[in-house]
């Protein structure tokens, strides 16, 4: 039993996936360091990490989807890493939008046409723009010391180690999935029509609830902003005083 556990540990440690995760997270942590030379080393390590993870992934079996998957996945992961580590919040928002484009490409590759477009429209089109609006309102000068330093010192390596463990556990706990045939239902010719049918038939109540949530969130956001700005005195009092 102990020997089996030991063998498993050795196998896990020697796999490129483990090394890729470790090296990549170390690279991310170095990207957050204040020294420029460390940041460059961090970029190099992050790229090596992504390459190692890519080597460890099983091949898809077809050339075109494989190349597209490579492109989209690299774009998404690299851009999200850049969003997390860029000093200026404006660049962080823009890199986040780029990462969303990569994710939308991944959705399209899976045959989820509606969701790919919806991600671009809702996330990159609306949410990122709202981010930029708030940035403009709250931080017009753009560059601040707390963005350059973050939680300096001990916090970044600790966070990186924790995250490497989380990713390692997520990836390491994947079982060997049984091979299945191509999905006939999800990849149906009338994909969007089927999706809409499912959404408005089986999940109708959920759609109603989500609509209510959106409305409540809208009213709540307006109420929160109004609470902060005390109302001006109504004009009626003035006219009454003059009467």
């Amino acid at each position: 039993m102990t020997a089996l556990l030991l063998a498993q540990t050795v196998l896990a440690i020697s796999s490129p996936m483990t090394w890729g995760i470790g090296v990549g997270t170390a690279g991310l942590a170095l990207r957050l360091a204040p020294q420029v030379a460390w940041q460059k080393l961090g970029l190099l390590l992050a790229l090596i990490g992504i390459a190692l993870i890519g080597v460890a992934l099983p091949p898809l079996g077809e050339a075109l989807p494989q190349v597209l998957f490579w492109l989209m996945a690299t774009l998404a992961v690299l851009a999200s890493g850049a969003a997390v580590t860029s000093r200026s919040p404006v660049y962080a928002a823009i890199w986040f939008a780029v990462s969303l484009l990569g994710t939308a490409g991944l959705f399209l590759l899976q045959g989820a046409q509606f969701l790919g477009i919806a991600t671009i429209v809702v996330y990159a089109g609306a949410i990122v723009v709202t981010f930029l609006f708030v940035l403009m309102l709250a931080q017009p000068e753009g560059h601040s010391p707390y963005d350059r330093i973050s939680w300096a010192g001990f916090a970044i390596p600790m966070a990186a180690i924790g995250v490497a463990l989380v990713i390692g556990m997520l990836v390491g706990s994947l079982p060997d999935f049984a091979p299945v045939g191509p999905p006939s239902e999800v990849l149906h010719e009338e994909h969007v029509a089927r999706l809409g049918g499912q959404l408005f038939a089986r999940h109708l109540v959920s759609v109603e609830v989500v609509g209510t949530i959106l409305l409540v969130a809208l009213v709540g956001a307006i109420a929160i902003v109004i609470q902060g700005n005390p109302r001006r005195k109504p004009l009626v009092q003035e006219s009454e005083a003059g009467r």
Partner: peptide
């Protein structure tokens, strides 16, 4: 296309995105 491999690849990418966001 190898569906099981596709699932495995996507789960790894999803885990990476989640971890980067967490960091």
């Amino acid at each position: 296309m190898n569906e099981a491999a596709l699932l495995q690849n996507y789960l790894v990418v999803g885990g990476l995105l989640f971890g980067i966001g967490l960091l």
